[in-house]
Computed example of a mutant assay.
Amino acid sequence: MAGRIVRWGAALALGAVWWWSVLRLALVPDAGVLEGAVAAGGWGLSLLPVHCVPKARAVGAVGSDRWRESWQEAWSWRRGTGGGRARGVR
């Protein structure tokens, strides 16, 4: 429970700082580099792939031990030789 409160508190605090910097950039004529850096950094963080899942839970992900086999199969399909297995069947 305490960890959840800390995470929410940190998210709210960082969100408030980001909004402060964006509003200061928009409304105050003497806003500077600090506000711009905070606003750009917060926007950049929103581009991170936070909705990724571990490879073990991802549907259709190829394990690290099967990369060579996967590449060989894809290359054989590209050349038109067909490969061993039918495409999409495992």
Rank of each mutant, 00 (worst) to 15 (best):
R85P: 00
A13H: 10
V28A: 13
V22G: 01
G63T: 15
W19N: 01
G60S: 08
L12T: 12
W77G: 02
W18T: 00
A56M: 07
W8M: 10
V33N: 07
S64F: 07
V22S: 04
G41C: 05
W8N: 09
P54L: 08
A26G: 09
W71F: 08
R66L: 12
W19P: 00
A40E: 10
R24I: 07
R4H: 12
A58L: 15
L12N: 08
A37V: 08
G36H: 11
A37D: 08
A86C: 02
V53P: 00
R4A: 06
A40G: 02
G80N: 10
S21W: 01
A61W: 15
S46H: 04
G80W: 08
G80S: 07
L12V: 11
R78S: 06
V33A: 07
R87P: 00
G9F: 15
P54C: 06
L14S: 08
A26D: 06
T81L: 04
V17H: 02
A74C: 13
R24A: 02
W75V: 03
L27N: 13
G88H: 10
E73D: 07
A11Q: 12
V17G: 00
G60I: 12
R78K: 09
G44D: 02
P29Q: 14
R85E: 06
V53Q: 04
W19Y: 03
L14M: 11
V62T: 15
G15R: 14
W77F: 11
P29T: 15
